[in-house]
């Protein structure tokens, strides 16, 4: 799969899981890798890029294991971006399924 395409999907997935509730870095990695086959070490750079683009805010919270943790929270801009992604992705998938269905019918 094209790397840029894969990165785009990962961005959307990260926006999606943090959309529902705030998460810390390792939690995002765990959640993503439990659902999809993902190269775990690409997650943090994406998180950081999306934060620098203003799609996430961060805040620090104390933890039981000692050191404080950085949490990621989606911003309004992030929500807008996620909605755009969702619309584009749904339209894209619709087209793909239509093509696949069409090919199956032809066969």
């Amino acid at each position: 799969m094209n790397t840029q395409f894969k990165k785009g999907i990962l961005e959307m997935c990260i926006l999606s899981i943090i959309h529902d509730h705030d998460m810390y870095g390792f939690e995002v990695i765990e959640k993503l890798s439990s659902e999809i086959d993902v190269n775990e070490n690409t997650v943090y750079p994406i998180l950081r890029r999306l934060t620098s683009q203003g799609l996430f805010d961060t805040y620090i919270e104390q933890t039981k294991i000692g050191a404080p943790r950085k949490y990621y929270k989606i911003t309004e801009l992030g929500k807008e971006k996620f909605n755009d992604y969702e619309t584009e992705w749904t339209a894209f998938l619709k087209g793909v399924f239509k093509l696949l269905g069409g090919m199956r019918d032809e066969r």
């Binding site: 390792f26 990695i29 943090y44 950081r48 000692g66």
Partner: peptide, 29 residues
């Protein structure tokens, strides 16, 4: 951030080798 990721991975029972895989080689990061 990476120190936190490392601690969280350790707290989740990952070995140093597994953490290295998860976080990636420093130059690739």
């Amino acid at each position: 951030d990476y120190a936190q990721l490392y601690d969280d991975a350790k707290a989740n029972g990952k070995s140093d080798e597994e953490i290295y895989q998860i976080l990636g080689k420093p130059d690739e990061v």
